[in-house]
Design a protein around this nucleic acid. Sequence first.
DNA 1: TGTTGACTTCGAGTAACTCGAATTTATTAT
DNA 2: ATAATAAATTCGAGTTACTCGAAGTCAACA
Lengths: 133, 133
Amino acid sequence: MSYSVKEVAEMFRISPHTVRYYTDQELIPGVARDHNGRRMFDDAALGWLRTIIAFRSAGMSIDMIRHYLDLYNQGEETIPARYQLLVKQQQLTRQKLDDLTQQLEVINEKVQSYDGWIHLAGSTQNKNSGSDC
Amino acid sequence: MSYSVKEVAEMFRISPHTVRYYTDQELIPGVARDHNGRRMFDDAALGWLRTIIAFRSAGMSIDMIRHYLDLYNQGEETIPARYQLLVKQQQLTRQKLDDLTQQLEVINEKVQSYDGWIHLAGSTQNKNSGSDC
DNA sequence: TGTTGACTTCGAGTAACTCGAATTTATTAT
DNA sequence: ATAATAAATTCGAGTTACTCGAAGTCAACA
């Protein structure tokens, strides 16, 4: 059995545009066309798409995914290289997480400063000495 | 005293290109030009730039920052609106943090699966039944 | 026969930079 | 005085991963 762009898009809850984009980027091996040029996805293609979506949601770039596919196609001797690639992505994601944690603190402070400002309006207290916007 | 693009860029460890970009986007009020058209940043401009960088690092979009500046320029009666804007950004950032935490787990699992694969090579054990790339 | 509806390709738009080229200007060295 | 260097300017294009819309093709149904 094979599936159309729309079916696949609904299956994975992504837009048909994105599905076409991934095939155009050659991220999904084995997507055939019917006699009208329409994309046909088989189960193997669905498996790859699932992986690609997982990788993307893990923050991996399209380029990195392409690289991973290249390695995969070169056989088992690239397993260590693929492992390295994943570890690298792991580090990148951890870094992002740390950054975002700090960012949340910055904004938390801002909000708190407004909290104080609003609830103590008219009071003489004013911790920030002027330059805080 | 006033500072050049390069000085400001070094002060905040961002590229001169980015500094010019922010002024072009009118994010920094009160950046004057000298008789040769060069940007001159005073202390107030530095204060704004510090705020802008904090907001950006908090994940706020340029558009949202522009909106915040507009509100600021309209005076104290916009304090509640500014507060709302910050709370909204706070929520957005929390959401991002949650997403990223999940993403990290996805990739952690992948790495672990490779870990097992590498260290148990040749063993009969194989948890994943084929379709895992 | 006509009208959906889904498919196709192609080209442009988005955000927030990032880069490079061409040009102008001020400072310094010879 | 002149030439080289460094930093500034503007402008336009490139980046990433989509996202959107237009124009055209095709099969199925009323």
